[in-house]
Simulated scan of single mutants.
Amino acid sequence: MEGKQDRFNGDTRVLHQRAVRIPLSDHEAERIFHENMMTVADARVRKAELLADPAISVLDAYEAERERIAESFERRLRRIAGDNYEEVAMAYHRGERDDRIGALAAYYFEGAWRIQQRTTITDMLFSPLILRYPDSFTMNIRFASGYTTRKSIRYESPEHSSEELDEYAETYYEESLYSQQQAADYLRETAEIIREEFPDPDESSFEDHQYGGIVSAGGRRGSVFSVMLERVEPDPDRFSDPVDEPSLVEAGPEARRTERDLLPDSEIVH
């Protein structure tokens, strides 16, 4: 990713109102999907532990999360397009190819590139949507202007503050630590939502795990960070055709609903 950023400046059309649909064709695929979602839940708990530790900065917790997301995108890119995924994505971006693999590579590459930009850019909200259906799951990679949603928990990072507080510095620091503790508690609670929405297929009936969904959001403005996660009910009538290979699909009614409910004041970039 690093070597391409000097000549790749993003293309919001790649992600706009689109999602990736991945087939769950057998029990092994279901098990892998479940394990991946448990990894997401575990990472949320790990971020909570970092935020709750006053010896660790918010920046360290934020960077650890960003690196995990970027690595997960790159792993998906390698599975889809091989080790030359950057060349595949850039060829699609330049209009030199227009096939399924190229489109998928460009989709994930755009997402990974924008995740990298969050290191230095504020007011960019990352709000992925993951939905489980009987024969597949979808992931919408979405970014929006702004840094929060109607339902986000906010917390403060003194390391990112540029204000001179003088006699209020100690109070500000204590209040910041308290907000971080509150956010850590929220992260732990919402990690359980992920576990409940995507139960182990070996320990639950198909009826109990054929549908599930979550939407999350995280952003930053200056020294203020935000986090949010809630359940989303998948539309059982969304897909009528079976799927046998990963492909891009329309964003879906759930995406429009969550954008309307959570991001009324933000512009969905894609």
Rank of each mutant, 00 (worst) to 15 (best):
S226P: 13
S223Y: 02
E233L: 11
P201D: 05
I130Y: 11
D200N: 13
E174P: 01
Q180C: 01
L131K: 04
L131P: 14
T190A: 06
D208R: 13
V215C: 06
D166A: 01
D200I: 10
E196M: 11
D261P: 05
E259D: 15
L262N: 12
R154A: 01
A184K: 08
G222A: 02
G146W: 01
P201F: 09
L262A: 11
Y178P: 01
S179V: 00
E233V: 15
P242A: 04
H160T: 04
T138A: 05
S162N: 06
A144W: 13
E192C: 06
A191Q: 06
E254F: 10
I153F: 12
P242S: 06
I130Q: 10
F206P: 10
D208K: 11
H209V: 09
D208V: 08
D241I: 13
Y133T: 05
E192L: 10
G146L: 03
P234N: 04
E203F: 13
P234T: 04
L248R: 07
E164W: 02
D185K: 05
S162A: 11
E167H: 02
R132A: 11
E259F: 12
N140C: 14
R220F: 06
S240K: 10
I153D: 02
I193S: 07
S247I: 13
I194H: 04
F137S: 07
E197F: 08
H209D: 08
G252S: 07
S161G: 05
Y172R: 02
E250V: 13
T148D: 09
P201S: 06
P253R: 04
D185I: 05
A217C: 07
